[in-house]
């Protein structure tokens, strides 16, 4: 039996990525995170259609943040994109995660959303590690662990001839 300094639990609960426990937990987490965004997006679509005016207004209020003038500029100049983009983006990100398709791409955009929420909400009364920040880290975790390969469509998509001939697509899948 080899000693693994990098995974001291591997001989107890088999937490290695190739082990069954991970295959239960990671897709569960991925679907819950997906539902989180899908719910946020689909309810905006139901109530406001593609005219989510709260998006540009939120960005315009993001003054004096670590992102500098970028959010305010976006709010002032990209309203035409943000109003439909927020509800559509949240819905598609959520769908992608729930079915496990294009998970890394979807999670990247999810991380972009959460970065704006974390910095913009600035609810740092209990420290800098907020719920928004943990949401951001969840999306990063989806990317790092390629969770779409666990009971997700990406596991099938990555086996297609098209992807096998274009291995760089795995940076968007997985």
């Amino acid at each position: 039996m080899s000693y693994q300094a990098t995974n001291p639990l591997s001989n107890e609960f088999e937490l290695e990525l190739s082990r069954p426990l991970t295959a239960y937990w990671l897709p569960t987490l991925r679907v819950v995170v997906g539902w989180w965004f899908f719910h946020a997006g689909i309810t905006k679509l139901i109530e406001n259609g593609l005219s989510f005016t709260g998006g540009p207004a939120y960005l315009k209020g993001m003054t004096g943040t670590a992102l500098g003038p970028i959010p305010v500029w976006m709010g002032n100049n990209l309203a035409w994109l943000i109003e439909p983009g927020v509800p559509l983006g949240e819905t598609l990100i959520g769908l992608g995660l729930m079915v496990g398709a294009l998970v890394r791409l979807a999670a990247f955009f999810g991380a972009v959303f959460m970065t704006l929420f974390w910095v913009g909400n600035a609810g740092f009364g209990n420290g800098i590690v907020t719920g928004d920040f943990l949401g951001l880290l969840l999306f990063v975790t989806m990317i790092v662990l390629a969770t779409g390969r666990y009971f997700g469509l990406d596991a099938l998509i990555e086996r297609t001839e098209f992807v096998r001939n274009r291995p760089r697509l795995k940076y968007l899948l997985g």
Binding site: P20, L21, Y24, W25, P27, T28, V31, V32, W35, H39, I42, T43, I46, M98
Partner: peptide
């Protein structure tokens, strides 16, 4: 493990869909 995942996903996703 199946029951654990199933309960979480049923509550969050299935009941969430019904609620919408």
């Amino acid at each position: 493990l199946g029951a654990s995942s199933g309960l979480v996903l049923f509550s969050v996703v299935v009941l969430g869909v019904l609620e919408i």
